[in-house]
């Protein structure tokens, strides 16, 4: 299995995190997303016409979006069925939070790309959009704790929705978005970091072990 990867790309981190949590071994091929924009070059578009990172290659199969990669990995490599649960309720919840992850990419993720890799766009507007989403997520997680739910979906375990949202949230400060106003999100970040198989990236550090 091969991951076309850029170390500092939030969604590439989501793919690496999922692979690490599942204990799947893989190779990486570095694609110079910044500053070379190699993901837009014809050579890379020949593999991924969307011109996007990350891209996962498993044998002859190719998945060129983070949503596709997480869904495929969970379905193919998680014998417990926890990461992409198939009850009606959880399918709906996972799909909903995967959509929120996409909105986080377009706001918090975009603010980070603007601030750290000089992407085009309005950083203030991206931050405002992200703050509106983070308020909702913090409220959702706060009530989750009161109800005995630790994760975004109502399962007793994390799902690919947590992994899809996590990189944009945990890297938000790169884009100038403090998490001080989101204490329940900060606690959820600790919980993700304590999962067996958790892995770090530049700017994402481990936390202390739970008791």
């Amino acid at each position: 299995m091969k991951l076309y990867d850029f170390e500092l790309h939030a969604e590439c981190y989501a793919a690496r995190l999922m692979l690490s949590l599942l204990g799947v071994t893989y190779q990486t091929e570095a694609v110079d997303f910044y500053p070379e924009a190699a993901h837009l070059a014809p050579e890379f578009r020949a593999i991924n016409p969307l011109g996007r990172l990350p891209l996962l290659e498993d044998g002859t199969l190719r998945f060129g979006t983070v949503q596709g990669i997480l869904s495929y990995l969970a379905a193919a490599y998680d014998p417990t069925g926890h990461w992409a649960p198939d009850t009606a309720v959880l399918r709906g919840e996972v799909a909903g939070w995967m959509a929120v992850a996409g909105e986080l990419a377009a706001t918090a993720g975009q603010a980070r790309l603007i601030e750290t890799m000089f992407a085009d766009g309005d950083a203030e507007a991206a931050r405002a959009g992200a703050e509106a989403l983070l308020r909702v997520i913090d409220q959702h997680l706060w009530f989750g704790e009161v109800e005995g739910r630790d994760w975004l979906c109502s399962a007793t375990h994390p799902t690919i929705a947590d992994i899809a949202c996590f990189p944009h949230v945990v890297l938000s400060e790169d884009g100038g978005i403090s998490r001080q106003d989101y204490p329940a999100i900060r606690r959820w970040i600790d919980r993700v970091k304590r999962l067996e198989g958790f892995t770090v990236m530049s700017g994402v550090f481990p936390t202390s072990s739970a008791l």
């Binding site: 704790e145 998490r179 001080q180 204490p183 900060r186 606690r187 600790d190 936390t207 202390s208 072990s209 739970a210 008791l211």
Partner: peptide
């Protein structure tokens, strides 16, 4: 409740 086990609150 902001201070669960082994957490640091900002």
């Amino acid at each position: 409740s902001d201070l669960p086990t082994r957490h640091v609150f900002h």
